[in-house]
Design a binder for these strands. Structure first.
Lengths: 206, 206
DNA sequence: CTATTGCATCTAACGATGTTAGAAAACGAC
DNA sequence: GTCGTTTTCTAACATCGTTAGATGCAATAG
């Protein structure tokens, strides 16, 4: 393979990138219908119209495909779960409720993606350092948003993650198409805010 | 194979049962050091001193071995997580705190067992109806204990499971040897009790 | 237009996996 | 000792992720 350090990608590189995207898309489709580990490299290849070994021209291994899916998931997440965009137009409590709902909905929108991002369900797969860094960034971003409203205690952040991730996990594994735990998100945020001293909406300026 | 419907097991049956137990024990050992899916039937057989196909005289499949481990886990759990044994000698709130700690400790005592019981981490494995029933029983037992103290709302039970399981999940995946989330169990139970109207200990008879 | 170079894809195969078939060995009862 | 049962074995199958090496194909240089 010839190296190309220039900024503009060559034609071959753009074509290869398109193939890679097609592979990932097919991998998502297979994963949603057969489970993340329910398909083989041969099946994936067939879905793309090539033979299995050809996949290795685009990805080093099956794990590398999972890694690309993992990275893509965090790109899709973006700022879902952040409270900061809401803090300007809403009270603090409402902002955190909206943030919690964003995160909750992002998770339940695609249970397969959730499983890849948050459960360690694929034997042997660990996200690459690069992909893991993305997940760390979104965690620290939220930590700073809590700190910005005066909640700097690590224990409080830990309680938040436990409550919100607990609700999403229950929803996805016990009632994937329903609303049993979604309906508890506001309650949970209220309990959390009561505990850490974020006043009820309307009480900030009594 | 000759059938034996009598109550007393024949010698051969007792020997076979002993072998089965040895296999399960070896499977636990391998799972704890290599992960639940990190060992092969050939490795398991070698650990027991037999050849792989012989395992199939004792278990129908690898999944049947996981199923036996799953069932055994719920036997070990027993009443861990139940509040009822504590309700006689303690206030309601304290009883539920003790129950939550029992459950939490049972989970963190053996993360591999936790993974088998509560995460769906083994591709293709679903507990048999019989094994699943055991897990349902312990859930309904707790539901009745909540009802016994006047908390009959399904939503409240859902909130409890989300909070407690959220704490244990975070502990095991982010701090398996530490105490970060264990230290939050009492806080979480307090928040829960405040919400559902279980009075603080000492307030029952003011 | 041809020769060369680099890339894309293929077929064939390897070692490991869970599992099955069928033969051999070991065991218990009479 | 002999028979029937139980236990274990060897050999093999299909499938898995993956690698080696050959072949076809595109674009480029002379």
């Amino acid at each position: 393979m010839l190296e190309n350090d220039s900024v503009s990608p060559t034609l071959a590189e753009r074509r290869a990138e398109a193939t890679r995207e097609g592979v990932i898309e097919a991998a998502w489709t297979l994963s949603r219908s057969l489970g993340l580990t329910g398909w083989s490299m041969r099946e994936l290849a067939k879905a793309v119209g090539i033979k299995a070994p050809t996949l290795y021209a685009y990805f080093d291994s099956k794990d590398a495909i999972y890694d690309a899916m993992f990275r893509q998931s965090y790109e899709q997440k973006g700022s879902s779960g952040d409270a900061e965009p809401y803090l300007a137009a809403h009270g603090e409590r409402d902002a955190f409720k909206l943030a919690a709902h964003d995160f909750f909905d992002f998770c339940t929108d695609d249970p397969t993606r959730y499983q890849l991002m948050f459960q360690r369900t694929i034997p042997g797969f660990e996200p690459s350092e690069q992909a893991y860094a993305a997940s760390q960034r979104s965690y620290e971003r939220f930590a700073q948003q809590l700190a910005a409203v005066g909640v700097a205690d690590q224990a409080h952040l830990d309680l938040w993650t436990a409550m919100i991730s607990g609700l999403t996990a229950q929803q996805i594994s016990n009632d994937p198409t329903g609303d049993r735990w979604r309906a508890l998100v506001d309650t949970a945020v209220d309990l959390f805010c009561d505990h850490v001293g974020i006043p009820p909406t309307g009480d900030q300026n009594p």
